[in-house]
Deep mutational scan, measured.
Amino acid sequence: HRQALGERLYPRVQAMQPAFASKITGMLLELSPAQLLLLLASEDSLRARVDEAMELII
C-alpha cells in the first residue's frame, strides 16, 4: 500500500524538487496513509510538506 502511494507521490514531488525527489518522497512516506492520501488530493498541502522537507534537508 505504501509502495503504491510512493509511486503516485514521487512524480509530483519530482516536479517540485527534482534533485531531492527520492529523499523527500521517502520522508513523506513516514506519514500515515491517511495523511498521504490528503497530500495526493491537495497540491497545496503537498507543496507545503515538500517545502518543510527541503528546510530539513538544507
Rank of each mutant, 00 (worst) to 15 (best):
Q17D: 02
T25D: 00
A48C: 07
L28V: 01
L31S: 06
L29H: 01
A4K: 13
A21P: 02
Q35S: 08
A4L: 11
G26H: 14
T25W: 10
L56N: 08
P33C: 14
A34Q: 09
Y10K: 05
R49P: 00
R2H: 13
E52H: 09
D51M: 12
F20P: 02
Y10R: 07
A15H: 09
R12Q: 10
A53D: 01
L9A: 02
M16P: 01
R8A: 11
G6R: 14
A53H: 04
S22T: 10
Q35P: 02
R12I: 12
A4E: 15
A15K: 10
L56E: 10
R2V: 14
L9T: 02
A4S: 12
I58S: 09
A48K: 12
A19R: 11
E55D: 09
I58A: 12
L5E: 03
K23C: 06
E30H: 10
S42F: 07
E55W: 14
S32A: 11
Q3A: 08
L29D: 00
L40P: 00
E52A: 10
L28A: 00
P11C: 15
L36A: 02
G6L: 15
S45P: 02
V50S: 01
Q35D: 05
L28M: 04
P18W: 06
L29M: 10
E7G: 06
L5A: 04
Q3S: 09
E52L: 08
S42C: 05
R8P: 03
V13D: 01
L31W: 03
D44A: 14
L46A: 00
R2C: 09
G26R: 14
L38V: 10
D44H: 09
E7P: 07
I24P: 00
M54T: 05
L36G: 01
R47S: 05
L38R: 11
S22Y: 15
L38H: 08
P11N: 15
I58V: 09
E55T: 14
L28C: 01
I58D: 07
L46S: 00
R12Y: 11
V50T: 02
L9N: 00
L40V: 04
P11V: 15
A21I: 01
E52D: 07
D51F: 12
P11M: 15
H1L: 11
R12N: 04
I57P: 01
S45T: 10
Q14E: 13
I24D: 00
L9P: 01
R49Q: 10
M54W: 05
A19H: 11
E43V: 07
L39D: 02
E43W: 11
K23S: 07
I57W: 04
Q14Y: 15
L56C: 06
L37S: 06
L46Y: 01
A19V: 13
S45F: 13
D51A: 14
R8E: 13
L9C: 02
M27I: 08
H1C: 09
L9V: 06
D44Q: 13
G26V: 12
Q14W: 12
F20M: 07
L31P: 00
Q17P: 01
S45L: 14
R2F: 05
L37H: 07
M27K: 04
L5F: 14
A21R: 01
E55I: 10
E7H: 10
L46H: 00
A21C: 02
H1Y: 04
R47F: 04
R2Y: 07
G6C: 10
L28N: 00
Q3R: 09
L5V: 07
G6F: 15
I24F: 01
Q14C: 10
M27L: 07
P33A: 11
A41R: 13
L31T: 03
L38S: 10
Q3T: 08
S45V: 12
R12S: 06
P33I: 15
E7M: 09
P18T: 04
P18Q: 04
G6T: 11
L46C: 02
T25Q: 04
L28G: 00
M16C: 04
L40K: 00
R47V: 05
S45D: 12
Q3G: 08
L9F: 04
A34S: 09
I57M: 07
L46D: 00
P11Q: 15
A53N: 03
M27A: 04
K23T: 11
R12H: 08
D44M: 09
A15N: 08
G6Y: 15
G6H: 14
Y10S: 03
Q3I: 07
R12L: 15
E43I: 07
L38K: 10
I58K: 10
Y10E: 03
P18G: 06
A53F: 12
R8Q: 14
D51C: 06
E52Y: 09
R49E: 05
S22K: 13
L28I: 05
A53Q: 05
Q3H: 10
L29K: 03
A53Y: 14
K23A: 14
D51P: 01
L36N: 01
K23D: 07
E30T: 12
T25R: 06
L36C: 04
S42H: 10
P33V: 13
A34K: 10
A15L: 10
